[in-house]
Write a protein that binds this DNA or RNA. Sequence first.
DNA 1: GCAATTGGGCACCTTTTGGTAACCGGAGAC
DNA 2: GTCTCCGGTTACCAAAAGGTGCCCAATTGC
Lengths: 119, 119
Amino acid sequence: MKDTTQDRQPWLDPETGTCPVGETLRLLGGKHGPSVLHCLMSGEMHFLELTRALDGISRKVLTAQLQEFERSGLVARIEKHDARRRVGYSLTAKGSDLGAILSQLYDWSQAHRDRAATR
Amino acid sequence: MKDTTQDRQPWLDPETGTCPVGETLRLLGGKHGPSVLHCLMSGEMHFLELTRALDGISRKVLTAQLQEFERSGLVARIEKHDARRRVGYSLTAKGSDLGAILSQLYDWSQAHRDRAATR
DNA sequence: GCAATTGGGCACCTTTTGGTAACCGGAGAC
DNA sequence: GTCTCCGGTTACCAAAAGGTGCCCAATTGC
């Protein structure tokens, strides 16, 4: 038996056995994921436009990240059949909602910038 | 020269040249960071209590994570000088505020659970 | 003396992640 | 035809993150 500590992990979803918050954070992806999302909040962008805007991300990682976002339904991929056959990426409503929460992290960082532990 | 795209990365802090949101997310740590934080939202816990509650995290990673949280001022380390010399960890106000935002991620995950891309 | 508890530290290994560079295929421009 | 742009894909490599297991020091209980 586990122990006498508690009822065990009330922050876990009893159905899936996982932490929804952790899962959600995982959706944000790796090193550049949040930046990509944040970047797209200003509107639709093309693939190479993103690589240039993020400046430091490799095409490999960006494609992987965008595909993951597409699978999770955060981002929509739009193939333009114009001359340059460019591909646009934009946030879905779901992704946009998530981006709004990310903005609160920005507010948090501003609120707690210099006053150490706010003790 | 850069390009004609835009004014360049308005989501970056002009002072530090970094994305505050990305930096904040980085504070959450790796695989188990958010869980640790979430776990501590229910109150102060001891080291081994955390290892048992999280069940799957190694002591090495937990130690590193807690030290990182302490450095960032999210968590306070309290040495008890009682019989067992146990060490308590609890959220600071700063960490607590951050935890509150994490809770919104939970709400988001509930809101977008089954309706795919919410298009 | 000996074991167990508590909170670590350290060395070693595997997995994951990300970067680099090359290549590809379709369409225009020349 | 060749060159370039665009959006990828692939193979290869380096770094980072995480897991395992062992050691340690102080204290209590036997």
